[in-house]
Amino acid sequence: MALYSFLAALIPLNNYGHFIHWHWLYISYANFIVICLMVITFVAALLLPFPGHNRRKGNR
């Protein structure tokens, strides 16, 4: 229970949500952050070298 109150103090969820409102775009910060993280993960997946790549080069 102590852990709960500690976490609840760190991340207060008992408020109104926060929203980005830019022209037609209306999205919560939470959803916006998740979409950004997915884009970052996608780009990282394309750019970061895959371990063991060299070992298997030319080994079709």
Binding site: A45, L46, H53, R60
Partner: peptide, 14 residues
Amino acid sequence: DTQPSYVSSWIYVF
């Protein structure tokens, strides 16, 4: 046993 070489990319992990 094996996969083509282009499969060794993080994008295939998802």
